[in-house]
Design a protein around this nucleic acid. Sequence first.
DNA 1: GTACTATTAAAACATAAATTATACCGCTTG
DNA 2: CAAGCGGTATAATTTATGTTTTAATAGTAC
Lengths: 248, 248
Amino acid sequence: MSNPLIMKLEHGAQLTDEDRAVLQHLTGTTRRVARHMDISPEGERPEDVHLVMQGFACRYKTLRDGRRQIMAFLAPGDFCDLHVAILGEMDHSIGTGWGCTIVDIPRSTIEDLTAHHPRITRALWWATLVDEGTLRAWLVNMGQCEADRQMAHLICELHVRLRVVGLAGNDSFEFPITQEDLADTLGITNVHVNRVLQDLRAQGLVEWKSKRVRIPDVERLRAFAEFDPKYLHLNRRSEDERPFWGTP
Amino acid sequence: MSNPLIMKLEHGAQLTDEDRAVLQHLTGTTRRVARHMDISPEGERPEDVHLVMQGFACRYKTLRDGRRQIMAFLAPGDFCDLHVAILGEMDHSIGTGWGCTIVDIPRSTIEDLTAHHPRITRALWWATLVDEGTLRAWLVNMGQCEADRQMAHLICELHVRLRVVGLAGNDSFEFPITQEDLADTLGITNVHVNRVLQDLRAQGLVEWKSKRVRIPDVERLRAFAEFDPKYLHLNRRSEDERPFWGTP
DNA sequence: GTACTATTAAAACATAAATTATACCGCTTG
DNA sequence: CAAGCGGTATAATTTATGTTTTAATAGTAC
């Protein structure tokens, strides 16, 4: 059994076998979404919550003049729009990059989950708050670092997150994304992305060939990027922690 | 009665008089924190949750070489660290800029709140998710906009948020912050902040004199900044909305 | 296999913003 | 009242990144 959702949520709460069975059942029927499609467009109020199971989706926003900012990469095990039920309509869009497989989960199922499965509820909130922490890390990165460090930081983050769900080895992972998408992620031009990648390659920090990223020396790259994975809060929670809320 | 917390949370859920009384009681004992102090430093696991009642605090992160990125301004009615109980330790710091008044709320009180007051619980989650939306807006701003638009966008946002808690008039508000802090917010140097402010002033978009910001023509500034307040989700929720979770 | 398209690479030039330095102003504080 | 300090205002120089263009690949369809 290698369900990315379960593998991820194990880091957010101590799950029981029953919890795992519930989550496994949740991810029963998947659906393929082609590349360059919107899963959940800005302005809508989706009836289902969406969960990525294979490939990558991204959270993005397009400005009037066509510029686009990618705000998150959604890997297997990541929810796309868990917040929409409280906030009302989507204030940004979720799209596929190169296509991905997702699960549509009715809101009512989530309500049931949170009403009867306190550990899962806690894990879902943990995931939401980690998303927020990741956003903060991206903001710091973008505000204070030059493009090469930003790029290195992004690669380090993806490496950790994909290892959690079993999709990265010790030193490499698949990441089917174009330099243009990377440009819209880091807030620089695709030309500059290319320059930066060449540079990282020349320094022996990263290899990136045909959709596969390899990191020859993880520690060196992390040092270069000043990457500290603490913001991903992956340390498994200890038993004695008090419940906070949403856990009756 | 002009409690900023209540004024804000009214936008996140339909509160009853009883809810308001609970919230009013919550904010009974305030404490003054001097300027340039940390309320909740990175790495700690605070026992109390902190709420700003007067003045401004900010969410920030310092890098090894001393550079600092401000990730949020916390105005009256804003919680500083509602997430820490689930995430464990703080992955960033909360500090005062020019000093502010806060309330220390024991975690147990929050637990009680979320166990017995569903509408308040919903409003707190709403506030958390709006924080996340704001972070996304900052990221888009920082990634895709030049410094002058970023600055204009920030001013527009603060204007809206401060109006919600009754601390801004139609066209102006107090904002005691230095150009250096603004630089650490937008990810530019203080020199460049100065240039940009001069520029906005010359264009008649903003007046900023001795800690007071005035916006001669709000619509014009918003157009310039491409500011759309939707991401603050201030439309009061309608009655027929289904509860999501955390609302037993 | 050929043709078509998407993606990556690379060069030349333009510009926003960083850096550094210095002058200025308005408060405190002694 | 002078001295010191935090904050603001400018200017000169340098650097990172943007813009535009054209070429070289790689993938995909016919």
